[in-house]
Simulated assay, not measured.
Amino acid sequence: MNPERSAVRRTGSTCVGILGELLLTIGVVLGLFVVWQLWWTSVTANAEASTIMSDFRDGLAPEVSHTADLRTDDPPVPSPADVGETTGTLIVPAWYGLTNNEMPIAEGTSLNILDRALAGHYETSQQVGEVGNFALAGHRRTHGNSFRYVDRLDKGDQIIVETPKTWYVYEVTDHEIVTPDQTDVIAPVPHHPGQKPTERMLTLTTCHSLTLGEYGNDHRWITYATFVGWMDRSDGTPAQVLESRDN
């Protein structure tokens, strides 16, 4: 056999072997990245959110073990909070058994907040219980999967906000899918930023798609809810909160 031809073949085989090893290594690295992104980030984020919620609730008066009628007069409105401050708890009874249906609410929507499995309050939106739009953001996939099952919410499902002194109860009215540039969904009157609000609303915003390749960054899922009443913490606890915790 021609020595030069044999050398070329050996070189070619070596190159193919090296390329194969590189592709295998890249595949392993990508696989580990997916595991980290989809699973481990949620493990660490949920652990941190649990600690934050425990610290928040440690400072509250004990929860009353019975319910009471919702009040329909004007609710108390909390003062604005500092960015990063924990202001309450978001409770979605319909998510019980599907995911963590209770999570801390913090002021602001930066990744430093959302990546800790918190619901972030848009600083430009109204306070909870205030006339206008109390708007919250959360991850749908990774970092806690906070709003993963937002598509399971139906009209009439309750969304409840717990603060140190008050329970605020909203009911889902509608949802829509928008592009990221449609930021007027968190206006005091959604899609009408110059209009004066006349009702109390809550809006949840999150990514639309759960597709692995795009992580849902191309559209947003928006859920709207309207205020139906409030309850002083010393008077009782909303029935759906008690029911979900008893199951």
Rank of each mutant, 00 (worst) to 15 (best):
G138Q: 03
G138A: 13
R140L: 03
R141I: 09
R141S: 07
T142I: 00
H143T: 00
S146I: 02
S146K: 01
F147I: 00
F147H: 00
F147W: 03
R148I: 00
R148H: 09
R148F: 04
Y149R: 06
R152F: 06
R152N: 03
R152E: 07
R152Y: 08
D154E: 13
D154I: 01
K155H: 08
G156A: 09
G156D: 09
D157K: 09
Q158M: 03
Q158W: 03
I159W: 02
I159T: 03
V161T: 10
V161Q: 05
V161A: 08
E162I: 07
E162C: 08
E162T: 04
T163D: 05
T163I: 07
T163K: 05
P164E: 13
P164K: 14
P164I: 12
P164Y: 15
P164N: 11
K165E: 15
K165P: 00
K165S: 15
T166H: 10
T166Q: 12
T166D: 13
T166K: 09
T166A: 08
W167S: 10
W167M: 12
Y168F: 08
Y168P: 02
Y168L: 06
V169K: 13
V169C: 10
V169I: 13
Y170L: 04
Y170P: 04
V172Y: 09
V172A: 14
V172C: 12
V172R: 11
T173E: 12
T173M: 06
T173C: 07
H175L: 05
E176K: 14
I177T: 15
I177Q: 14
I177H: 14
I177E: 14
V178T: 15
T179D: 13
T179K: 15
P180M: 13
D181I: 11
D181M: 12
Q182Y: 13
T183G: 14
D184T: 14
D184N: 12
D184P: 02
D184L: 03
V185C: 11
V185S: 07
I186C: 10
A187F: 05
A187R: 07
A187I: 05
